[in-house]
Nucleic acid binder design. Structure first.
Length: 659
RNA sequence: GCCGGGAUAGCUCAGACGGCAGAGCAGCUCACUCGUAAUGAGCAGGUCCGGGGUUCGAGUCCCCGUCCCGGCUCCA
């Protein structure tokens, strides 16, 4: 029949329908269950409403709630319900944009008279949303001319701005925009400008929760108006919502700021200043182990160790370009030696590279010395804007495991390749094994160097990244001012991605500092620089590990590896000997004496509060037969009567294998 | 930097209206000496973030600052 169309389903089967059939009807023809679950449809890869008539042969997939597309539609529709609720409860409220996001949705509003939402408002709004959902309001798509759209949203300046921005060429000539209307009894319909698609009715929603209210700039422009954003989460079922909320709780449980205080690892004394951490003995111990291990690996990988001061005269950062490009992120200068004239300006260093360059430049270099790899745990200070500091992951003073590799242009790619292998191995040694790479290209606003140099450097990084067999994502414009970078993103135990290592290729600073080496041809050549930090910063990496392990550091990193608990005072001499023995073998041991508390309470403290890997309880039987009772973290039942030597061997093996 | 919220004992928090600053846990002391996730009793613990102001009187109200939290913007 001429008026029939052929629909190809996801399993590649085909069915014939009259032209104008809707996806809803297709779903019905496939099965009742599917028809009931259907939210929207994908037609040749594009999402459309269920009542969107099919007018040509197409691949059609019915989208159900528990799919990524399905969740996105649920969230997007929930955002509309949020906007409806807010406009109902707050007459005169203006609504701006309300997209689905990862895990939920938000909507940006502007209330009359600069009013703000409170937490109580959030509850009222959520209540109104539940009413709207119970009212079973349909979502009705409408297409109108742009001019009509401008009229319909006469009192909604943000909507008008969006409509005005719609490019004629994008909407297929007709300059048509789409709206979604929720008809309802007793009130004017709620209408929102929207591309769609949406669920057929508000009754399809429900497993949602409003989360918080926050400020957000209109169109992400910090010079534009500040709107009020309400965040919510929405899922296909109450169970999925509960699971999501549970994941949030789990993330909170792992929060390094909370664990840092609980485990007595570090703090941020108010007296010191925002974003400036002090590490306490236990945190300092973990940090020292991390650094020591890193040093050993770097030494084995052919790095030389250097050090440099924390401050320097302004001239150095003028030459490097930092004062021109990076000054906003630098602490203001201090003027010294002011006796005669205006004095000399010194800056706290925001980066270590200029110092390493001066070390390179301290004498003529031969090609035989290259690649020259200069490594330093270099502490840098960056003047982060006051609102952005966050625990150890965003600070104003940090120590980078920083190195600068000076090499020839010919060797650059090989060096990058071996460097990436080195990075992934080192991160793996700390228990991070799930990576992807991100390639950051030339920033559009601030960058030094020619496009050709940027292209060459970017291509070199890309080709090496491609060889690693890891997922590679593009971060357009995310490079530093002097060069593109690859960053290694590591996924932690609960699947969150953290940026750790960065590797930057730099043709600019060698030129700015006029660096050379003498080649085999006895001519002077310009070296290439690679900037790289593998932990990123020790502080941030520390935080990542803390969250990854939820505070339960593996034995080789744990600040206290073993707690020895004598059952009663008469077991103290044996316990003391045991502690001495373990310490002599280089293990980190604490003794929790019998006078301190009951055995139960001491076990609880060591194992469940301090998260010590091994709790050793020693009593009469142990004294008699040179054994220990081993209560290992992560197990429920202790091993009784374990010979000391057996335990020591087990501990030594774990530390040696970095477990 | 911007919007909103906050800061009370080491920690978590309570303190309508402005009227003698509290609890639990942690700490210390004593008793208990106990075999693997909270023994009992007692004691001590405070610049109510700092500085100004209003008031007979301020933890509480107002202003300024510091720091923290959730976002935005920015980023290792």
């Amino acid at each position: 029949m001429a008026d029939d169309i052929t629909v190809t389903l996801p399993d590649d089967s085909t069915r014939s329908y009259p032209k104008g059939t809707t996806p809803a009807e297709v779903a019905v023809s496939i099965g009742r269950r599917l028809a009931k679950d259907a939210l929207v449809a994908s037609v040749d890869g594009e999402l459309v409403d269920l009542d969107h008539p099919l007018d040509h042969d197409a691949r059609v997939a019915i989208v159900t709630p528990a799919s990524p597309d399905g969740r996105e539609v649920l969230r997007h529709s929930s955002a509309h319900v949020l906007a409806q609720a807010v406009t109902d409860l707050f007459p005169g409220a203006r609504y701006a944009i309300g997209p689905a996001i990862d895990g939920g949705f938000y909507y940006d509003f502007e209330l009359p008279d600069d009013a703000h939402f409170t937490d109580d408002d959030l509850e009222r709004i959520e209540g109104r949303m539940r009413e709207i959902i119970a009212e079973d309001q349909p979502f009705v798509r409408e297409e109108v001319a742009r001019d009509e759209g401008l009229e319909r949203f006469a009192d909604q300046p943000y909507k008008r701005e969006i409509i005005a921005r719609v490019d004629d060429s994008e909407v297929g000539g007709g300059a048509v925009i789409s709206l979604y209307r929720n008809p309802r009894a007793g009130r004017a319909d709620f209408v929102d400008l929207c591309r769609g698609p949406h669920v057929s009715s508000t009754s399809r929603l429900g497993a949602f929760q409003l989360m918080r209210v926050a400020g957000a700039y209109w169109r992400a422009d910090e010079h534009g108006p500040m709107l009020q954003r309400i965040y919510g989460t929405a899922w296909e079922s109450p169970a999925a919502l509960a699971e999501h909320l549970h994941r949030l709780e789990e993330a909170e449980r792992r929060d390094h700021r909370r664990l840092g205080a609980e485990l007595d690892l570090f703090s941020f004394p108010e007296e010191v200043g925002s974003g400036l951490a002090v590490f306490h003995p236990k945190g300092g111990m973990v940090r020292t182990i991390m650094e020591d291990y890193s040093r050993r690996r770097h030494e084995a990988a052919g790095y030389s160790f250097v050090t440099s001061p924390h401050i320097t005269k302004a001239h150095l950062f003028e030459t490097s370009g930092h004062l021109e490009w990076f000054a906003d992120s630098m602490f203001p200068p201090m003027l010294v030696d002011e006796g005669s004239g205006e004095g000399t300006a010194y800056y706290l260093k925001p980066m270590n590279c200029p110092f390493h360059i001066l070390i390179y430049r301290s004498r003529t270099r031969s090609y035989r010395e290259l690649p020259m790899r200069l490594f330093e745990f270099g502490t840098v200070y960056r003047y982060e804007r006051s609102g952005v500091v966050h625990g150890l992951t965003r600070v104003r003073g940090m120590t980078q495991d920083d190195a600068h590799i000076f090499t020839t242009r010919e060797n650059m790619t090989a060096e990058l390749r071996s460097l990436l292998v080195f990075v992934l191995e080192l991160l793996g040694d700390f228990g991070l094994n799930d990576f992807y790479l991100e390639l950051s290209t030339k920033p559009s606003d601030k960058a030094v160097g020619t496009d050709e140099a940027w292209d060459e450097a970017t291509e070199a990084l890309r080709s090496v990244a491609m060889d690693m067999n890891l997922e590679l994502v593009l971060d357009e414009g995310g490079g530093a001012f002097y060069g593109p970078k690859i960053s290694v993103q590591a996924r932690d135990a609960i699947g969150r991605a953290w940026q750790v290592s960065t590797i930057q290729l730099d043709f600019q600073l060698p030129a700015r500092f006029d660096l050379h080496y003498v080649g085999a041809d006895n001519e002077r050549h310009r070296p290439v620089m690679i900037h790289r930090a593998l932990f990123g910063s020790i502080e941030r990496f520390f935080a990542i590990l803390l969250e990854h392990y939820a505070g339960a550091f593996p034995t080789w990193l744990a600040p206290v590896q073993v707690s020895v608990l004598p059952v009663a005072d008469r077991h103290h001499p044996y316990a003391d000997r045991l502690v001495e023995r373990l310490r002599a073998d280089g293990f980190r041991v604490e003794l929790l004496g019998a006078h301190e508390d009951t055995i139960k309470k001491r076990v609880r403290r060591a194992k469940h509060q301090e998260l010590v890997p091994y709790v050793l309880v020693v009593g009469d039987r142990d004294v008699e037969s040179e054994t220990v009772g081993v209560n290992a973290r992560g197990t429920d039942d202790p091993d009784y009567d374990v010979p000391v030597e057996t335990f020591v061997a087990r501990l030594a093996a774990e530390v040696a294998e970095r477990r």
